[in-house]
Design a protein around this nucleic acid. Structure first.
Lengths: 190, 190
DNA sequence: GGAGGAGGTTAGCAGCCGTTCACATGGGGC
DNA sequence: GCCCCATGTGAACGGCTGCTAACCTCCTCC
């Protein structure tokens, strides 16, 4: 028997979709309700506020990203493999949950202060995993450069939602190839 | 004598900064006014509406991107040079105007229908310039793949605003290197 | 079979926000 | 010197939106 998603999760999924498409402020409480077949204020039986929905959404994404990434790096046998695993992990995430990735990339500013602090902290730790892994394979990057490179790769991979012209597998292959190529050590013209 | 920016342009710049930081709906008319030292409704002496500001902002960015890109490609002597020029152009743009790039990447959804159509059309033409250039240098990409690759490179380059840890020149060098590497023909393991 | 809680409904309120209005003012051309 | 238009102001309005309130209806469990 497949897991029946709880009402909370239904709501969160629908809200993520809407937030991704129209932006946090562009979506009304009634819209979210309508998307799950109930209407407006019924949402308050499940969440304290609209802000709370965004907060829960973003902290959960950030936690999943961080510990999935950490786990894969820990399990990898070599730095190169770690990097490939990390790229694969992020690509899969972005392709499987484009709405969540979009919301996370765009709507940090709409969080409550405490929520934002929490999410920021998680994101920093995730970036740190990337920075360490990158520096173990691309030896000519100093730390700030590696950090900037990590953000650039996120941008590359997270671009997914804007172009659905390829099927999932082709897209995964393309993004993986491009991401790894962009992080390859500088080609030294002999 | 330096160009004195017209009031309109002052407003547009301030609004771009605010839209980039808080999102279109997260910024009030009064906020924009305050940012240029006038207050609230005075803006209506210069723009018909808040939507009109976003509309003008995005069409002007899209036009500048398109014809700068087109010009550089036309002036290039070889496909490889054309691609390098295109990457350099987009990188410069993103680094010089991070707010505009951010707004363009995130706030398409907030445009009026006719404005959105206009901007979409311009963006499509810009992407087409990239697709053609990419396909002339990376011969193993079919058209949909090249289009997806172009979007991915935009994501990579537009990630700029999220990481200001490097100075402009280093950042430009890094982004250019990564973008070109990500588009290099697939390394065939001999 | 009656009590009660979970989850839903509609009506309404309060605050915000884009926009308009009536009015001030100051610098240039006749 | 006067007029007038460009530019700015504060007050007010109307609609939208997040949230609360009051009420209904099952389903469950003793």
């Amino acid at each position: 028997m497949a897991e029946k998603p709880s009402r909370r999760d239904q709501i969160l999924n629908a809200a993520a979709e809407l937030f991704a498409r129209h932006g946090f402020h562009g979506v009304g409480i009634d819209d979210i309700g309508a998307a799950v077949g109930i209407s407006g204020p019924a949402l308050y039986r499940h969440f304290r506020s609209k802000d709370a929905m965004l907060g829960e959404m973003l902290t959960s994404i950030s936690e999943r990203l961080l510990d999935g990434g950490q786990r894969r790096v820990d399990a990898a046998a070599s730095p190169d493999e770690a990097l490939r695993e990390l790229v694969g992990w992020h690509v899969d995430f972005a392709l499987d949950d484009p709405a969540l990735i979009t919301v996370q990339a765009r709507n940090l500013a709409n969080l409550t202060d405490p929520d934002r602090r929490r999410v920021r902290a998680l994101q920093r730790r995730y970036v740190e995993v990337w920075v360490d892994t990158i520096r173990r394979t691309v030896t000519d990057f100093d730390e700030p450069t590696a950090r900037a490179a990590a953000h650039a790769v996120f941008g590359l991979i997270n671009s997914t939602p804007h172009s659905a012209h390829l099927d999932r597998d082709q897209m995964a292959a393309l993004l993986t190839r491009m991401a790894l190529a962009s992080l390859a050590p500088a080609a030294v013209p002999s």
